[in-house]
């Protein structure tokens, strides 16, 4: 593949084509899981962060590594454990005896792609260390703000099975994630293709990312984000997004609904969705298609619904079925 040298200013077609190339490259490593790759790209283009939930061994780390390789960006991984401290994430100041001065040691958050692996294994204090960097894209160490390199994206993972000894993410933290992505088991054909890819003349079970090429630079990703932000959104579509979010607050089966950040996230994600389809405007289908990953972590299921075996997706689908679509 010819690695195009992206220019800081991109047209919609160029941005869309680059996004497609990124998708194709990641799909070489993460076999199947097209929806997961697509939703991760949506978050990247919208400048958001993702929370990925899935059982171990489905390729969550591989997804992040492949994405970092494809965008030629820096990648850091933090394994969240109960004894992890906030300074282990953000960084700290040390006194340098030799030079007789304080040196700032930046933490692993100073990267393009940050993988917060099993984020719910660390207590809320440590989880909250990510709040500032996710929202403001800067880290304050000893009163001084240090910006992180852009584009910055946090990909946090959590395991839905082992809930013992975990700390559920607080609502304020959850709200910071643009999307919550479910990663499921691959189909039989996909799994066979994966086995062949991983075990072909190779030691260990780690997927070699050498065959992946960097198709864009971090600067190009920033330019793609700018193109995404300029995609037109009609007022009727904005009202539709707000109506859906409002409906989650009034709908039965939910303990509480999504806040205004949910409406904003819907529009941001819908713009990225439109860009992936090569469109320069958003229509209501974009909102509807992206509504579940955007809203599922911003609402809380009522206990009685949980007891009856429903999940947030069931209730959100019902909300979407009841919310009037815009008509011009």
């Amino acid at each position: 593949m010819n690695a195009t040298v992206p220019t800081p200013r991109l047209s919609l077609e160029q941005a869309s084509r680059l996004a497609e190339q990124i998708h194709t490259e990641i799909a070489k490593a993460l076999i199947g899981q097209h929806a997961v790759i697509r939703e991760t790209l949506i978050a990247l283009l919208a400048g958001g962060h993702v929370l990925i939930e899935g059982v171990p061994g489905l390729g969550k780390t591989l997804l992040v590594r492949a994405l970092a390789k494809t965008i030629a960006g820096q990648f850091a991984r933090i394994q969240f454990t109960p004894d992890l401290m906030p300074a282990d994430i953000s960084g700290h100041v040390l006194f340098d005896m030799h030079n007789q001065r304080f040196d700032v040691r930046k933490g692993p958050v100073f990267t393009h792609l940050l993988l917060a692996d099993e984020i719910n294994r660390a207590p809320a204090k440590t989880q909250s260390a990510l709040l500032e960097v996710m929202q403001e894209q800067q880290v304050t160490i000893e009163g001084l703000a240090y910006p992180v390199p852009l584009p910055f994206m946090t990909l946090a993972t959590q395991n839905p099975l082992e809930q013992e000894g975990t700390y559920p993410l607080p609502e304020a933290q959850l709200d910071r994630f643009l999307l919550k992505i479910y990663i499921g088991y691959p189909s039989l054909e996909e799994e066979i293709a994966m086995i062949n890819a991983v075990t072909n003349q190779q030691i260990g079970d780690r997927f070699q990312l050498d065959q992946l090429q960097a198709v864009v630079t971090p600067e190009a990703v920033s330019a793609m984000q700018q193109v995404t932000a300029q995609i037109a959104v009609d007022q009727a579509v904005v009202e539709y997004a707000a109506r859906i979010t409002q409906a989650t607050r009034q709908g039965q089966g939910l303990r509480f609904g999504a806040g205004p950040r949910g409406s904003i996230a819907l529009i941001r994600a819908a713009r990225a969705q439109a860009l992936l389809e090569g469109r320069d405007f958003v229509h209501p289908d974009d909102i509807k298609q992206i509504a579940l990953p955007v809203l599922r972590h911003r609402v809380s299921l009522a206990p009685e619904m949980e007891l009856e075996g429903y999940n947030t997706d069931h209730v959100l689908k019902a909300v979407l079925e009841k919310t009037e679509a815009p008509r011009q």
């Binding site: 229509h283 209501p284 289908d285 509807k288 079925e321 919310t323 009037e324 679509a325």
Partner: peptide, 9 residues
């Protein structure tokens, strides 16, 4: 066709 159906639906 219901009121919640978008053009795509």
């Amino acid at each position: 066709i219901h009121t919640s159906h978008t053009e795509g639906d």
